[in-house]
Design a protein around this nucleic acid. Structure first.
Lengths: 206, 206
DNA sequence: GGTCTATGTTTCCACTGGTCACATAGGGCT
DNA sequence: AGCCCTATGTGACCAGTGGAAACATAGACC
């Protein structure tokens, strides 16, 4: 116990819970130095171990990055659901989730970028896969509630609607952190780019 | 002229047109080895020069990548406009541009990624800035044609509409190459994720 | 013909991630 | 209690990277 923050209980070990410490340090440095300058040696140094130590817990830099991304997806899921009030309308719930999605990206741009950089991650990492799928499930789960999929009554539109929503928030998030928008600080709120929600009752068939 | 392929005319120079050759080689290797494994030394080796030679034409790896990205934005613009038939309806023109946007990303995933990786590029590179802005202008120019901005009649909606369209195609493009979609090969066509175009006359006020 | 400058090479440096043999320390068995 | 044994971390090496500086070369220009 001792600290018991992020680490698991044992503290008087070799180092403590090095695995969690590395993930923690990695997430901090990620936003400090940027995705491209993040180095295994740097992370190890911050924790105070040699650069070979992580090998005992992760499969190289890739493995560590994958673990960080997995943690990122969990926080991403949390960001989408935390503002969710079960009592609010389904439309508001969707709005809140979309705003959470985008806000997370703006607050953790480097992490968000990492999470969607397949070239840096281990596709087969179980934790990463699970966390990523869960994150997607959170979004689609809220979208499904709205069954705007009945617009033309066909079954296939379900997937299309999910993709539309996902593409929209994902694209806006990405643009906001891509440095291509003229004034990202004062960009319109997320709901401003999903305006069809304002003009048409989502659940109606029209 | 001599060859006159990608190089400009002069061939009996030191190397020929090294600057263009490096950009060309870089674009090829980019898709071959992936964005993260692309190296200045590798590009130089393919062209047959020492790894210090590019310094005379670019400001380090950053400069070369920026030049490649600039060329990428030009091709991106071309991809959006090439299928454009002036005689087709404005809706069809928008559809064609959107499909061009996404198709480009799918055909040049690493390049597309590079183009939107501010950490790798030189923000102040003039060619890159110009090409990037032009690319955005192409998209918004076509969107403007459609004046769906009149949905609520307010002026501010213009920017929101542009952002919505851009976010949508950009997000879908990104998701398709992010490795997070289950079966990206058989993903729905781009128009399937912009379905509001099918259900509501864009130019009408409803 | 001779110098001058653009272009390219060589050699060095600091840094990266990966691998191996080795050290250490705590757990568990006898 | 004492011992081994394995998980964990270290140090020394390697190939590779981008960058910088001194040097070489070959066209250009007078």
């Amino acid at each position: 116990m001792d600290g018991g923050e992020t680490s698991s209980g044992r503290d008087a070990y070799h180092h403590g819970d090095l695995k969690a410490a590395l993930i923690q340090a990695g997430m901090e440095m990620l936003e400090e130095v940027g995705l491209e300058k993040l180095s295994l040696r740097g992370i190890a140094a911050r924790v105070g171990v040699s650069h070979a130590a992580p090998k005992n817990h992760f499969d190289g830099l890739r493995g560590l990055l994958s673990a960080i991304a997995a943690e990122g997806f969990q926080r991403h899921s949390a960001a989408m659901t935390e503002g969710l009030d079960a009592s609010s309308s389904r439309q508001d719930r969707l709005r809140a989730a979309a705003e959470g999605y985008v806000a997370f990206a703006r607050e953790n741009p480097a992490l968000f970028r990492l999470m969607f950089s397949p070239g840096l991650l281990d596709r087969d990492n179980p934790a990463l896969c699970a966390a990523g799928q869960k994150s997607y499930a959170v979004l689609t789960g809220i979208a499904e509630d709205l069954d705007w999929t009945t617009l033309d009554g066909s079954e296939t539109t379900q997937r299309h609607s999910e993709l539309m929503l996902w593409s929209l928030v994902h694209g806006y998030a990405h643009l906001l952190i891509s440095g291509r928008l003229s004034d990202p600080e004062h960009a319109p709120p997320t709901t401003a780019v999903m305006p069809w929600m304002d003009y048409k009752p989502i659940t109606s068939r029209r």
